[in-house]
Design a binder for these strands. Sequence first.
RNA 1: GUGGCCGUAGCUCAAUCGGUUAGAGCACCGGAUUGUGGUUCCGGGGGUUGCGGGUUCAAUUCCCGUCGGUCACCCCA
Length: 448
Amino acid sequence: MSPKALPGFRDFYPAEFAIRAHILDTWRRIVRRYAFMEYDGPPLEPLELYTQKSGDEIVGQLYAFDDKGGRSVAMRPEMTPTFARMVASRAQALRKPVRWFAVPQLFRYERQQKGRLREHFQLNVDIVGESDVLADAELLSIAIEICRAFGLDRSDFYARVSDRRLLNALLASLEIDADAWPAVYAVLDKLERQPREISAEKLATAGLSAQAADAVLGFGAFDTVDALRERFGGSPDVVVHLDRFAQYAQHLTALGVGEFLRLDLTIVRGLAYYTGIVFELFDAQGEFRAICGGGRYDNLLQSLGGVDLPALGFGMGDVVLGELLAARGKLSAVGTPAADVWLVASEHTPVADILRVASSLRAADVSVEYALNADKLHGRKTTASIKDAQKAGARVALVFREAGQAEVLPLAGDAPLPADRTVLDTSDWSPTSVPHTDLSPLFQHLGR
RNA sequence: GUGGCCGUAGCUCAAUCGGUUAGAGCACCGGAUUGUGGUUCCGGGGGUUGCGGGUUCAAUUCCCGUCGGUCACCCCA
């Protein structure tokens, strides 16, 4: 048995690489529509960059080691600390709001499971320097538009959205002690996956009154601002946040993605650093993990980098997204790239002629392939060579039946054949230059 | 880190109750045929049955360990 990739790591054969490229290309294409700029940082960082935010216990979940200079280092498990450092060190000079994105490969040392490997690519989109809810709406609309760009619609996915400030106000209005909030968050996070009795028990342990616990257990039932307003509208502290959420929803509707929005107070996000609106994108059938998650983290930059700027962002990984797209048939059209043109020599065609034409076509940005074996180039029947071209997936075969003349033979699927044979005169083509001959008959078959 | 299930060709799978030299399709390579061509046919390469140990006259098959895969828990960036 030949050596395999390490557990949780992937070999990308051309078919898989084509899917990866499709995902990453689409990410970049859509995010650029929103005028975000791409950045990147080192894949290897000082270990302290992560322990200072998350504590020492995180080391067990990192690819961490001492380098040859004795430094404690880790392969990056997330992009946010790097991003925070980069923004903080030039915070004064950056035009606000900062609209940046990155597509890092991230690593974590954990047992792999569905949708979760030890390595993945993750789109990170962040906005820094704007606290208005308009920025929150912009951010979520990007995540949604990306999913739509992959061919997913409202029947495939939706966004669950909550707001830390709203949730905290609700807990306060229920007279729940702030010390108990983390425990309440944990219960809310598991509300759907955990039996109600266990949730109730945990809330009681956290010190909640029976009434307060009942109210928390009922949070999952509220899926509109109006429903919350009816129940908690008497509390001015709550109303402030309900109003903002309503505004958020209006912005999203105006941006054309309102139908994907669903208020859901059980969306907690594990991170302690979220301070405002938080969201996760889920597939509608509940078959996969969250496709994407993010929110507002107004205090993080100060705690990491020392600059006090509001910020928000999200991450979207390629693994769950790829699984979902595959399951919904959205990757069937993703093909591996093949040659535009395959050159078929006859026994009379000098090798030099083939090479000259190949060079010339490549100068015209046409991808060209031919048999890399002189015997095959000359010793096979034309039909056998054409068969090679078809197997390779070439769009067009150029068949040299006579010197200086190349017949254009379209190979693509069931495209109709031209009534007349198209013959290109290649006699005056020279290496590395664009052919003088009119290539339009060829380009026509290549879809240019 | 804990637990369930699963490891046979590149892929999907077969191999009677434990019994001869572990087979097939697809893919790959070669050839024939088809001569506006992805058809059809013939042939070929490819396996220490994940690895190690045990039971047995005999192990792909039963047992133990280990590694890997997968799913869940934990955790979530």
